[in-house]
Write a protein that binds this DNA or RNA. Structure first.
Lengths: 241, 241
DNA sequence: CGTATGCGGAGATATTCCCTCCGCTTATGA
DNA sequence: TCATAAGCGGAGGGAATATCTCCGCATACG
């Protein structure tokens, strides 16, 4: 197999991942290192989002940069390897949410679980909200989520429990908002994002008599100060060249 | 005066801004350029936040970098010159909000106006949410806002119109969230942040019978796609050194 | 018209990121 | 056992990006 591939390449026939299934088994140590890379990357991406460098990953895995680049030619490949499964989790959450006979219950289930996944993993949030590094299979998987949410929203609205002017496309924006709350306060109080989701949920219910219990305390002054220190203005591209 | 200052510096006595009031009048052209810098910076900071470079500002003002650095020794100085007035506006909004006899009306007034100011000016948002570049007078002014909000929240809660588990310290987080909505969707639909603030307000009212009208349409798929392209994972510091 | 003041922007310095290259090491199977 | 394909580390090249200085030249103004 290896022989054949090499020959094909020598003939100027580049081997495209996916066209020919390159399944050459790795040497034992190489396979181990691949696992270490994935493990380190999982943690780093979850903590700091898709912005992490392959250099960071290498360092964190206790390996040289070269090793990482040999196994994953670029960040896209690593991202795909790591997040396919996680996006499938999202799809499953949405499917499970559709199982509820009560549309509001389902919607609640969706938001609670989806936001938990996406808020606690910055990388997953980047995958859902952005498009950088997201190609091929991962992109396709991601596209499966929206229609499910649309059904769910429609159902809850038909039953009159979700406010009628809400739209499925608002969901990613809620994700961005919960993410912002998390990034702002997370240093001082991880999990506080639930407090703000509680507020939003009370704003989404078509009719409500009681208030949802807010599951976390607000930041105290010291914590807010900490958040303040942590805030960085994101550099925006400026268009000129 | 200039003479004196120079001598003092020659003697190794650094001149601190604010200790000695340096009020030497600028040459006419220099004064003009100073205005151009402020004008350009105002626009850039509003659009892209405190992350803009003094080089950016210079270029946008049609001046050389040196000119900008001569007039404003660093970004702190420029930020202070630009945002003092804007923070005073915030203070005035909060004071005006306290004038309402109806606490909820006042709270509504506060959020509507404060969030408008802070959402439409990324720089102001950075000033409020962050601490980078914020020193001296600007810092002091900023500190005047929180107590006003505290009174306002207390008042509305005493009157039973604002949910009792809300805290004044939640306000900056709401700012961060509205800002996130704006940054995510702003390219496709500026002003859409009001849609999400409407939801949040409905979640903050202690009792509500009707829903607040959502002032903007949700993004359509094309717009959402645009938002997706615009999303960048903020690079977080990684702690190692 | 002399000179203090101001101007432009190249470039020094520092940081960050992406990725390649190459000398050395190691797993593997003939 | 040992030849060798496969793998490894990490220095370093190259490209951006940001901050701030320096100095030869221009100009406002008394």
């Amino acid at each position: 197999m290896t022989r054949l591939l090499t020959v094909m390449e020598d003939l100027g026939c580049p081997i495209e991942e996916g066209e020919v299934q390159v399944e050459r088994t790795l040497r034992k140590d190489a396979e181990e290192n691949r696992e270490r890379i994935l493990k380190a990357a999982k943690v780093l991406f979850a903590e700091r989002g898709l912005g992490v460098t392959l250099d960071d990953v290498a360092h964190s895995a206790g390996l040289g940069v070269g090793t990482v680049y040999r196994r994953f030619p670029n960040k896209d490949a690593l991202v795909e390897a790591l997040f396919e499964q996680r996006v499938i989790e999202l799809i499953n959450v949405a499917k499970a949410a559709l199982e509820f006979s009560d549309g509001w219950e389902g919607f609640l289930y969706l938001l609670a679980n989806m936001l938990t996944l996406e808020t606690e993993d910055r990388g997953l949030r980047d995958v859902i909200l952005g498009s950088e590094y997201i190609k091929g299979r991962l992109r396709d998987l991601k596209a499966e989520v929206a229609p499910l949410i649309e059904s769910l929203v429609a159902k809850a609205q038909e039953q009159g429990t979700l406010r009628p002017d809400f739209r499925a496309n608002d969901v990613p924006v809620l994700t961005a908002m919960a993410g912002a709350a998390q990034e702002y306060c997370g240093v001082a109080s991880p999990g506080i994002w639930k407090r703000y989701v509680a507020i939003v949920l009370d704003g989404l219910k078509a009719n409500r008599s009681s208030l949802t219990h807010m599951p976390e305390e607000a930041l105290n002054h010291e914590q807010l100060h900490q958040a303040t220190l942590n805030w960085k203005s994101r550099r925006l591209s400026d268009g000129r060249r």
